[in-house]
Structure formats: C-alpha cells, structure tokens
C-alpha cells in the first residue's frame, strides 16, 4: 500500500513539475493501474488531434519513445513497421511518441519508411514520464511493451531488436 502511495506521489510530482515548467504533454489522468504510468495519458497526434493511449487497451501495445533527431531510433522503426504489418491482425499495436520533434519532420520520415502506426507528439514532459518506467537517463529510443490487460511487461532502453521483440510479444499475442 505504501509503495503504491509513493508511486502515485511520484507520478503526481512529475506531472506537476512538467506542467509548472510550462511543458505540454497532453492530458494526463492516471488510471487504476499504477504499474502503468502511461495509462490515462492523452497526447496530440501530428495533426493536433488528441489521442488517448487507452483507446488501444486490449491490444498488445508497444509504445516507442523516439525522435527524428535520434539516429538509432530511426534505424529500428522499419522493423516495427514490418512487425505491425505482419502482426497487427493478431492484436499488436505500435504507437510512437515523438519527443521534442516537429510534425513536418515526422510526416517526412513517416512517408520515407511507410509508417503504418500512429505517432503522438510528446514534449519533454512525456520523456519525464518515461523515467517512471525506468528510463532514468531520459534517453532514446525507449520502448515499453504493454499486455492486453494494460500491464507493463517489458521496457527497453536502446534498440529493441526484432528477435527480442518477437520473443516478448509472441507470449502475449
């Protein structure tokens, strides 16, 4: 119980700090599972439309924090595109959260790689939120695998290689 309370306070403090600093990271109302700080998060897509992450609840979700200015991030995305095309029907859903990026650069990159899953715009506040999932250096790329029940089952700083991704999501799909 105490651990839960501490985590809630941590979530609240990060959210407050980000807002106090004038950093926009969308609407945030944490859900019932403190094990997943991304629950309840709403971010705008590249066209400015609000997209709640909870709309993908029930799917196996891979949330990828990335940016066009991050070379290794761009390197791994074509593999995510392949996995989304192959396993989307089985309930796999990738969602990108682009950090401190520009919609026009994201659109250009999306066209280049044939991006087939949504990208949401995250400011530094979203990056702060990733710290709650273990991304202590706030570095990129950072990926989070969430099961159909909304539980975080894997987090990865650095490249999430296809074989590893396959192993993790194979058990969940």
């Amino acid at each position: 119980m105490t651990k839960t309370l501490v985590r809630w306070i941590a979530v609240a403090l990060v959210a407050l700090a980000a807002l106090a600093g004038g950093i926009y990271f969308g609407k945030y109302s944490p859900g019932e599972s403190p094990a997943n700080p991304l629950q309840g998060l709403t971010l705008p897509d590249v066209d400015g439309r609000d997209q709640p992450l909870d709309q993908w609840r029930g799917k196996v979700l891979v949330v990828n924090f990335w940016a066009t200015w991050c070379d290794p991030c761009r390197e791994e995305i074509p593999e995510f595109v392949k996995a989304q095309a192959r396993l989307g029907d089985k309930g796999l859903q990738f969602v990108g959260i682009a950090i401190a990026d520009q919609p026009d650069k994201i659109r250009r990159f999306s066209t280049d790689v044939g991006l087939n899953y949504p990208t949401l715009m995250g400011g530094y506040g979203a990056l702060e939120l990733s710290k709650l999932l273990g991304n202590r250096l706030a570095a990129l790329p950072f990926s989070v695998v969430i099961d159909r029940q909304g539980r975080v089952v894997h987090t990865q700083l650095g490249l999430l290689k296809p074989e590893k991704l396959e192993t993790i999501i194979g058990k969940l799909l």
Binding site: R136, L137, R151, V152, H154, T155, Q156
Partner: peptide, 20 residues
C-alpha cells in the same frame, strides 16, 4: 513488481552515463 523487474533489466543492460 513487473515494473520493478523491468527497471532492473534496463540498469543491467545499458550502463550509460548521464548526458552531463
């Protein structure tokens, strides 16, 4: 618990320096 396990995995995987 899952969250804690995941965090530990990262620490072991990537002994990176803070940016500064």
């Amino acid at each position: 618990m899952l969250w804690l396990a995941a965090s530990t995995a990262i620490a072991a995987e990537a002994p990176l320096l803070p940016a500064e």
